[in-house]
C-alpha cells in the first residue's frame, strides 16, 4: 500500500504531520477538507511520501514558497 503523510505548515514554517494515509485519494480528501477550512487560511497543506526522517526534528520546518 502507498503511505502518505498530510502535513500542515504553519505561517512560521513549523510542520505538523496530521496523519498517515494509505492512498492518494484518501490523503487528498483530507487535504481538501483542511484547505476548505476558513479558520486555517494562514496554513498550507502538503501531501508527502511517508519515508524515514522526512520529519525528523531537525527538519521540522518548511519555508513558504514565494507566489
Amino acid at each position: 500500500m502507498e503511505k502518505l503523510y498530510v502535513n500542515e505548515i504553519a505561517p512560521d514554517g513549523t510542520v505538523s504531520t496530521l496523519g498517515l494515509f494509505y492512498s492518494q485519494p484518501e490523503a487528498e480528501r483530507a487535504a481538501d477538507k483542511l484547505r476548505a477550512n476558513p479558520e486555517r487560511t494562514a496554513y498550507r497543506y502538503e501531501i508527502v511520501e511517508a519515508v524515514r526522517h522526512v520529519l525528523a526534528e531537525k527538519q521540522s520546518t518548511r519555508s513558504f514558497a514565494k507566489e
Binding site: K3, T14, S16, T17, L20, Y22, H53, V54, L55
Partner: peptide
C-alpha cells in the same frame, strides 16, 4: 516505527496499520 513525526510540537510514532 523507529522514526517519529512532529505534530504540533509533540513527537508522534505513527503506527503502520497495514
Amino acid at each position: 516505527p523507529q522514526d517519529y513525526v512532529m505534530t504540533h510540537g509533540i513527537k508522534r510514532w505513527l503506527i503502520d496499520l497495514e
